[in-house]
């Protein structure tokens, strides 16, 4: 059962990283346009250019 000493903190840390990731995505506005995001995922890549890339 000594393995718990590693596994439990590891599991908690992973959970915490997931939560931080969620909070980051929320803060950077990734939930502002869910309909659009659904389509952007399958849209063709924009032609490479040094400008015009959004964000």
């Amino acid at each position: 059962m000594e393995v718990l000493v590693i596994l439990v903190p590891l599991a908690l840390a992973l959970g915490f990283v997931g939560l931080l990731g969620f909070l980051w995505s929320l803060k950077s506005g990734q939930y502002d346009d869910l309909d659009g995001a659904a389509w952007r995922a399958i849209a063709d890549d924009e032609p490479a250019s040094d400008q015009g890339q959004s964000r």
Binding site: D32, D33, S54
Partner: peptide, 15 residues
């Protein structure tokens, strides 16, 4: 985006 000097043009489809 092709207009010069435009740094960002982003559509929000939901709204």
């Amino acid at each position: 985006s092709t207009i010069p000097d435009v740094t960002s043009a982003r559509v929000n489809l939901t709204d």
